[in-house]
Structures are given as C-alpha cells and as structure tokens.
Computed example of a mutant assay.
Amino acid sequence: MTRRIVGYAPGAYDLFHVGHLNILRHAKRRCDYLIAGVVADEVLEVTKGRRPLVPLAERMEIVSHISFVDEVVAEVVPDKVETWRAVGFDVIFKGDDWRGTPKGDRLERDFAEVGVEVIYFPYTVHTSSTALRRAVASLDDIGSDAVEAG
C-alpha cells in the first residue's frame, strides 16, 4: 500500500490572484492531500511589516473554495517547523523567489532535519500581491488628488 503524501502550501493569499492559483494547482499535482496555510494577519505584520488588505477569515474563505485545496488552516506562528509540528505534512511548497535566499536556505535546512521536502514552483512575475497593492495605492492617490482639486 502506498503512503499518502500530504502537502502544505503556505501564503498570505492577500488580493488572491493567478499566481496564488498556480502555486496551489502545481502543489496539488505533487501530493495526495493539500493543506493551504493562510498566514494570520499578526504574523504578516511581524514578517512583512504590514497587515494584509483582506482579513484572515475572508482569505481563508476564498482559499477554501479552490478545488485543488483539501484543507485550510490559519498559520499563526512565523516558524514553519512549528507549523509542521502542529499540522503535519511531508512536503512544503514555495514560490521560487525563495530559492537561494537566506529565508529559503534556512527553510531547506530546517526541513531537511525533520524529513520534509521543499519544492519550489515558478513565481508569477507579472502578477503579485505587491504589484496589486501598489496599483490600489496609486488609485487611492489619484482619487485623493481629484477630491483636493474639486
């Protein structure tokens, strides 16, 4: 009997876009059961220096309706190995923008110690939450300039 492979795809999933969808689609092809870890607002504030635009409960609701996802959990601690201890998975999926970075190297080293494989998928360069956030901010700036001029 073959063992079921549990995969874990953590992310903010803020301003959900095709890059998020691609990561989840590719991840599901590499495991039998896919858990999406939606990073909590407070953890994003600590790790990225800003809160998401969409609150955690709403991001979890969106991700839970993606057909590739079998389960959604809130990722409430910044330490991925601590999350692994709580959730349990065999492989973790990340965008390849992590590969070769200090964060990616630490992730690989920490998970090698507990037997979890790290798999990278292509980062969707033309669409990112950061780019979408900038676009929304520029629209806000245009709108406030129009109000001031009016």
Rank of each mutant, 00 (worst) to 15 (best):
V116L: 12
V54W: 10
Y33I: 08
L24E: 09
G100R: 14
L34R: 09
P10Q: 01
Y33V: 05
G88T: 07
L24W: 09
Y13P: 03
K28Y: 02
V125G: 13
G11T: 02
R50T: 00
W98S: 08
D105F: 13
G11I: 01
K48I: 01
R29A: 10
V72N: 09
V69K: 10
V39N: 01
D41M: 01
R109N: 14
Y123H: 10
E82F: 08
R29N: 10
I62T: 03
A57C: 03
R109D: 15
V43G: 02
V72E: 03
T130M: 15
R30E: 04
D32I: 01
F93K: 00
D105Y: 11
E113Y: 15
A57N: 05
A27Y: 02
T127I: 14
R4H: 11
G37S: 00
I35P: 01
A74L: 05
E75P: 04
A137G: 07
T101H: 14
V18T: 06
G49I: 08
P78I: 14
Y123Q: 08
L44F: 04
A131E: 15
V136Y: 07
I23G: 02
A131S: 14
K80V: 12
K28W: 03
D110N: 15
L56R: 00
R51I: 07
L34S: 10
H17L: 03
E61I: 05
Y123M: 08
P102R: 12
R59G: 04
A86P: 07
E42H: 04
R133M: 12
L53I: 05
V114I: 15
D79F: 06
K80R: 13
P102K: 15
E108K: 14
R59C: 03
R25Y: 11
A12F: 12
V77E: 08
G49D: 03
V6W: 11
I66W: 07
D14T: 03
L15A: 01
I62E: 06
T130W: 12
R59V: 02
V76P: 01
V54C: 10
V77P: 07
K48L: 05
T130R: 15
D14L: 05
V38K: 00
P52L: 06
Y123G: 06
R134D: 13
K28F: 05
V136S: 06
K94V: 03
A57D: 09
R85K: 14
V69M: 11
D105V: 10
H126T: 10
V6Q: 15
K48C: 02
R50L: 00
R50F: 02
H20Y: 04
D96R: 14
V125F: 15
R51C: 07
E82T: 08
H26V: 06
G100Y: 14
Y8C: 08
V87T: 12
D79V: 05
G115W: 12
H65S: 06
D14V: 04
V77I: 12
Y8S: 04
A12P: 06
V118N: 11
G95P: 11
A131W: 14
P78Q: 12
H126R: 13
G115N: 13
D41I: 00
G115H: 13
G7F: 12
V87S: 08
F93E: 07
I92T: 13
H20K: 03
G37E: 00
